[in-house]
Amino acid sequence: MDSAPNIADHYPVIETKGLSVSFGGHLAVSDVSCCFEEGTLTAIVGPNGAGKTTYFNLISGQLKSTSGQVFLNGEEITQYPVARRAQCGIGRAFQLTNLFPELSVQENIRLAVQSMAKTRDSFLTLWSSHKDLIVKADHFLELAGLEQYAKANASTLSHGNQRKLEVAILMALEPRVYMFDEPTAGMSVDEVPIVLDLIKRVKSEGNKTILLVEHKLDVIRSLADRIVVLNNGEVVADGDPTTVMASDIVREAYLGRARQDRVGTAK
């Protein structure tokens, strides 16, 4: 690997090369080569079963690829386990809410802060003596608008609030790469803007790489710099939102013929 820093700067933050995974002969993700640059928000779209979440799992490490490579800033991370990738700066929020149910909301976030702090493995100090971690956790708690539930167990939150907590945990990791998997799924209409504001906030920092799996077209339009369309595990379109959304291949693949009329109303 070239050590000259000015060259290293040219590496995309995340790059997948020929990434494939198959389950019992079925290719769930097939030969996906994509680069994601710093400061951009890429929406990954496609019909159900297109391999979006699987592709996410390959990047954040929950799944091992059958073939192909994953790079983070030019460094190959294909063999890194999940925890190491997280420590390298790949943060992930999950489609199915994935919390610590019997721990408090604050603790859910504080653990994320702790994971990225140097004191994370201390076992003779009191957790509460690390005030800086708590202060930071409370900050993200407030950003997500969950401060009134700080002491409640995560399992007692409403679905919408659990989704917010899911996003808040990701934000508390302060990663370089944010991976949101349908962050607004199942949320009520008035809760969606809170999550979108959080994503916009990350985006406005300018130096983060954001990957977003999302179904809501209006959300994609308002946030995405680029759209990658997956269908049957393959990239079928890739480009700026207006072009991609207008292309026939997308209408056919992503939206499906039967859903054409619904596109009309969304527009």
Partner: peptide
């Protein structure tokens, strides 16, 4: 104990 996979995803070596 609560959620092994999430702990891993947060960067803890389980």
């Amino acid at each position: 104990r609560e959620n092994e996979l999430r702990a891993e995803a947060l960067g803890f070596n389980v």
